[in-house]
């Protein structure tokens, strides 16, 4: 991958909308660890949507504001100006850690209903799917993507 800064941000938003949103809709009812009113595990429920969507939204915001500029800066030290796909996959680790802290700090953990495992499963699977789509199939949808440094909104 050879992203530009705006390409990183555009790709992040595009992938979150195209892959992240449908996947979150499908997955949320099945996420583990839902506790209702502190009574321990009770069952699955759609009540978690605010939690998972907040997580997805924050992943975009923190990414665009904090992480993408940082990655872009680091990329300048690479002669090839590329960003190995492995980096794109593994950066979920640092992003998820920050995301968890911010989510807990702002208190959107569903009133204590979301557990770490809820969050980990949601973010890890969403990220993996977005990444898998971005390393290949996206080029079928957007033929010019591989030449555009990750930008979606650009004819040439």
């Amino acid at each position: 991958m050879t992203p530009t800064l705006s390409g990183r941000i555009q790709s992040r938003i595009f992938l979150a909308l195209l892959i992240g949103v449908p996947w979150t809709i499908l997955l949320t009812p099945f996420l583990p660890g839902i506790r209702i009113d502190g009574e321990g595990f009770v069952g699955f429920g759609p009540g978690m949507y605010p939690v998972t969507f907040t997580a997805l939204g924050l992943m975009i915001v923190l990414g665009a504001v904090v992480w993408d500029p940082l990655y872009h800066g680091l990329q300048q030290f690479r002669w090839e100006r590329d960003w190995p796909s492995m980096f794109a996959l593994l950066t979920v680790i640092n992003e998820a850690v920050l995301l968890w802290f911010v989510l807990s700090a702002v208190g959107v953990d569903g009133g204590g209903r979301a557990q770490m495992s809820t969050f980990v499963v949601h973010i890890a699977t969403t990220w993996l799917l977005m990444w898998l789509f971005a390393v290949g199939p996206i080029r079928v949808v957007l033929l010019r993507y591989r030449f555009s440094g990750g930008r979606i909104l650009r004819r040439w």
Binding site: T2, P3, D82
Partner: peptide
């Protein structure tokens, strides 16, 4: 360099 085909260097 790789970025010349479709990225910052391009």
């Amino acid at each position: 360099p790789k970025g010349a085909w479709g990225g910052q260097l391009k």
